[in-house]
Design a protein around this nucleic acid. Structure first.
Lengths: 205, 205
DNA sequence: TAGGTATTGTACTCGTCAGTACAGAACTTT
DNA sequence: AAAGTTCTGTACTGACGAGTACAATACCTA
């Protein structure tokens, strides 16, 4: 039951706009003027609805995870580790090169190195990356358990390898590489894929 | 023959200190107070010796290329493409994880996404990355010409793949990965390496 | 030893930054 | 219609950003 003057903007749309500004300019590079202008609201509305800049960023990051970043969970749900890896790379590339987006990956390029004021944001993003890595590793371990990956495969290393390529692709995208070029990189990357558990059994016979 | 009051600091040492501040905090995150403090000089001395912040950064970048970044040229001088790639990855990792350094790679993490004021720095770094990529590609093409890489190998793709892994390793390092973990990633990455020209000939017989 | 020159340190300018006070506006409830 | 509540817009605050003016200092040359 709402009372008082109703809000004149859509918070989701505004948050979306803020997310894109952070994505494009980084945390430190995005000024409140940039943000309010893109969001189509003025400062007090922003502060009332989202708290301060840091709090706004965290909300934008959350929205990113549920929007552009959701390919991660979709990928991990694939039936095999190999498909998961393919989906991580190619799905990631789709996000990196989506023409409606600022390009690159918010989680990678927003605050890799920063001043004191953004330090807590940097750490937050490190945590996000670490958590994602962990999820990938767990997915691969499950695959190994299921015989989908060979017994001897180093899941931690493989997961970190895939994550590394994803992050590298993000830098490539930020450097102007186009979708086709990124896909070729993904193709190369997948050539390192280990023989599967079933192939291994095949060989044993 | 110098006249006037002599400079009381070593410009090279000061530039080195500035480089590390930029490396650690990024271009936008490094304030002039940070810089002058680390360099052990005061503002007018900085401006007299290095120009403005942007000019100082470009000089620091140059110093980076001739110092920590020099492994690139060393790697490309290796006799085979495979050795070059190994040296790019493992040599890069040494820089990324050098305990005396801020960690990660200056060229990757300094201004991936930034505000308007740092835009020209961002573009400069894109150019640096693109140029490096080009050098790697040229090295691989030479290898293909020499039969060191098989005739059909896509040198542009392979070069971009190696560069991508390097950039990804830089993000990993900035996220806290240690040297051993990065080396394991490099190992995985090299499993995608194509069969050599000579192996190919071997097979043909 | 006197004059010229370049560096140093302090203290400043001016713009931009994040964050906020306050008055007016718009809606609900009574 | 009046009171209560929440949002909007303007204009502000204080801190910090890059860049600089200027006097004092230290060296070289003459």
């Amino acid at each position: 039951m709402a009372t008082g003057r109703p809000r004149e903007f859509d918070p989701d749309a505004a948050l979306d706009a803020a997310m894109k500004v952070f994505w494009h300019k980084g945390y430190e590079g995005a000024s409140l003027d940039d943000l309010t202008h893109a969001m189509g609201i003025n400062r007090p509305s922003l502060y009332a609805a989202f708290g301060n800049k840091e709090s706004l960023f965290r909300k934008a990051l959350d929205r990113y995870a549920h929007g552009p970043g959701s390919y991660l969970h979709k990928a991990l749900a694939k039936p095999t580790a190999r498909e998961a890896a393919e989906c991580l790379l190619y799905g990631g590339i789709d996000v990196l090169t989506c023409p409606e987006s600022p390009g690159g990956c918010l989680v990678v390029q927003t605050a890799l190195a920063c001043g004191q004021a953004a330090e807590s944001i940097r750490r937050e993003l490190v945590t996000v990356r670490t958590t994602s890595l962990d999820l990938i590793q767990k997915r691969f371990e499950k695959a190994r358990h299921e015989g989908d990956l060979a017994k001897g495969v180093d899941c931690a290393g493989l997961a970190r390898y895939v994550a590394t390529v994803m992050h590298g692709l993000s830098v490539q995208a930020a450097s102007g590489a186009d979708r086709k070029q990124l896909q070729q990189v993904a193709e190369w990357a997948l050539r390192a894929w280990p023989v599967s558990g079933s192939q291994e059994n095949e060989r044993d016979r």
